[in-house]
Design a binder for these strands. Structure first.
Lengths: 234, 234
DNA sequence: GTCTATAAACAGATAGAC
DNA sequence: GTCTATCTGTTTATAGAC
């Protein structure tokens, strides 16, 4: 426990986790049998009960695994400026810095969700758990989604001056996230309409560019009236 | 067959369809048993085989039903200007008209997806079929998604002059649709982050207003450089 | 820790009475 | 057209050999 922080006694366990993540992601939780998982992991059904207590335990373990990995990936991006200098308080950026950091984060998210190889097993699982309000969604929300959303809201404040936790800003950040995530969730629809067989680096880059342009357009004052959000002409 | 174009001999059939739509939408296809459906329709399992041939037949019938209803709902919006006058050719609008029609369609879609009572049973089913690439997705895509997307692209062309079927425009329309649909698919996440117990009319209106503002910002020339999409500084 | 064998519950489909 | 009863296969979970 002390001398060996990470020995590899988790061959079977890890294989089951990998297989489950993959299959839950592609077929859904209810659409996947523990037989399939055991077969894909070159193991047997009983090993799932042994290591995870059952199918639901395996689901929870997948969620924790995903949250851990995503936090690891998101960490360097989330506190790029927090740990820069001690007296900086790590909270305020110049509007231009915040603006370009927002665009940079958007680009990263698009590339990660659409074509990063390390995201391939994680993202489908996460998105399914996000749609299905399962008891597992809690960990994913608290561990990943909320921190990232809060960070984006903070950057938005630094870029525009609008209060980060206002309804207006929180919802606007969701419209940004929605644009990105739709290209994953609605993947089959997009590919079909675009007559693309699959996403490639070039196509991902194109998508990221369009969302970046949208983002910059919304961030721009545009010298028009944007007094209060509730005064739409309807 | 001729004298009675639509008598009501479809009490059980209709009840099964309604129940299936509801349960498939909330629990997913594989997460729903035909026993549940029969029970919810106050019928029995055998009636499903009799009326629809089996569970998969019921799924297809649900898809057709949804496509029919959505087309009925979307029709008056889609060809509002097509049937206006014969010599109008029904294709070209003034930029201002196209622009306000785009905003109007966005508002309609948000309200329909988030709080229209008639959408409540349809939308979850459709969104699930859209994520899972099932053989049923075909009908939904061809019947609803593609026509709506094409119409939006056409309006975008009328509003901006960019060619409707260009990659640029088709993807931009998807960023618009993504913003809207995310508030449905990511509903649980949004509600939690906003600390809202549920969507209300006011909140839906607020969301619609923010997306409308984004749309207008992107549609505006903004007097900045927007020469070609591939020349991002990176 | 790993695996085979089996139990108990569940799925979808169907036969046949009414 | 409707429904009960049943068939057949599959599911998760588990007991027990190794």
């Amino acid at each position: 426990m002390i001398a060996k922080p990470k020995p590899p006694p988790e061959t079977t366990r890890a294989a089951l986790l990998r297989a489950a993540l993959e299959l839950f992601g592609s077929q859904g939780y209810q659409g996947t049998s523990i037989r399939e998982i055991a077969a894909a992991a070159d193991s047997n059904i009983a090993s799932i009960a042994y290591h995870f207590g059952g199918k639901e335990g395996l689901r929870v373990a997948c969620a924790d695994h995903v949250v851990g990995l995503l936090q690891q990936i998101a960490a360097p991006v989330l506190d790029l400026n927090v740990a820069q200098s001690p007296e900086d308080s790590g909270k305020n950026l110049s509007p231009d810095d915040a603006r370009s950091k927002l665009v940079a984060m958007e680009q990263r998210m698009v590339h990660f969700l659409l074509s990063a190889p390390e995201a391939k097993p994680l993202v489908p699982f996460m998105l399914r758990e996000m749609s299905d309000p399962s008891p597992v969604m809690d960990r994913i929300f608290t561990g990943v989604i909320e921190p990232v959303h809060r960070r984006l809201c903070q950057l938005w404040q630094d870029a525009t001056g609008e209060p980060a936790e206002s309804e207006q800003v929180r919802l606007t950040i969701f419209t940004l996230i929605g644009q990105i995530i739709y290209f994953r969730i609605g993947r089959e629809v997009v590919l079909r309409r675009m007559q693309w067989p699959s996403y490639t680096e070039d196509r991902t880059e194109k998508i990221a560019g369009i969302i970046a342009a949208n983002l910059e357009a919304v961030l721009s004052p545009s010298t028009q009236d944007q007094p209060s959000p509730g005064s739409s002409p309807e």
